[in-house]
């Protein structure tokens, strides 16, 4: 399917949810405004011209990835609560570099956001030769990041082969 058709369908679904009125007047207004937006900026959501089964599979894989991420967020918050409520605040902040093998832009974005949401780490910068500069709040979480479990999961979601280069 062409990407403009898919963009129109997504926009119109959002219109129906947000407006909440299903008479002819409001629906026709929605069709007109969605058409205008699709004509002007229909190339923003999808990069390729055609939307294929690949996109659908990535979407389903991403939804499967979310429960694990939510579990990680819960762990992160418990870890954070321990650090904050501890009277002495046992933190040892450090800045590390993590060389990643991810290629696509979208997988880099998802990986950076996942790093922020997992225990004790935030992404500070992504350099041009694919190095993630990560701020860690203690040495243990840095070791957790170096095991590379999350990178493998993200690579699986977006169907990338990260073991190829080594």
């Amino acid at each position: 399917m062409s990407r403009r058709v898919v963009t129109f369908i997504i926009l119109f679904t959002l219109w129906c949810i947000f407006s909440g009125m299903f008479d002819a007047f409001h629906l026709s207004l929605g069709v007109i405004s969605c058409l205008i937006v699709t004509l002007i900026s229909g190339d923003l959501i999808f990069k390729n011209k055609k939307v294929t089964a690949e996109h659908v599979r990535e979407g389903i894989n991403f939804i499967k990835y979310i429960p694990w991420l939510l579990y990680q967020i819960l762990l992160a918050n418990i870890h954070l609560a321990y650090l904050v409520l501890h009277p002495k605040m046992p933190i040892e902040p450090s800045v590390i570099q993590y060389k990643s093998k991810l290629k696509k832009d979208i997988s880099k974005v998802v990986f950076a956001n996942s790093i922020i949401l997992t225990p004790g780490t935030i992404t500070m910068d992504i350099t041009e030769n694919n190095e993630f500069i990560v701020h860690c709040i203690s040495q243990k979480v840095a070791d957790d990041l170096y095991t590379g479990e999350m990178e493998e999961r993200v690579a699986h979601v977006f169907n990338e082969d990260i073991k190829r280069s080594e």
Partner: peptide, 19 residues
């Protein structure tokens, strides 16, 4: 309020607010 460093403060807000 408690963390000494700007980046540590971001650690707290980025995770705690989301959940």
């Amino acid at each position: 309020l408690r963390f000494p460093d700007f980046y540590c403060k971001l650690q707290a807000t980025g995770k705690g607010d989301t959940l």
